[in-house]
Amino acid sequence: MYQLLFFVFAAAAVGFAVNLLAQRHPIHSALSLIGVMASLASLYLMLGAEFIAVAQVIVYAGAIMVLFVFVIMLLNAAEEERTDRSRLARWMGLPLVLVLLSAITAILYRQVPPDSMVRFGDFPGQTAEIGRRLFLQFLLPFEVVSILILVAIIGAVVLARKET
């Protein structure tokens, strides 16, 4: 059952990702990206990481993608115009992608021995446990990241402000 669902959602994630590139209208691409993120959330859920899955939906599929769609709508972006693809991309694109994918697979396979791979339900997602780890074990990285985000927010405000 889990295996079947894994292949369904994995196929959905890859399918949406390919569709994201193939679509010519920005809104359709954005919708495909939402599909990718939702499929990934389902995969997290099957690993048992409930909190991560829901955070993925709330933050990425919910908040960030709504902003994407909002901006696309606000700018009223039309279909993109395609130039003739370069000859190099046309003939070498697909083989090179395959080379890249197989290289990543080979490295992952060598780094992670097969018997130590993650299995379904490996991360029983105690939300309280994530919080405890975040505030005890990983306190410094957590705070550094929040300061980084604060700096980014202030930077965005400064950039967006009208010059007087």
Binding site: I34, G62, A63, V66, V69, F70, M73
Partner: peptide, 9 residues
């Protein structure tokens, strides 16, 4: 948070 897509789209 996903519900907003129905209205926006």
């Amino acid at each position: 948070s996903m519900g907003v897509y129905g209205f926006v789209l």
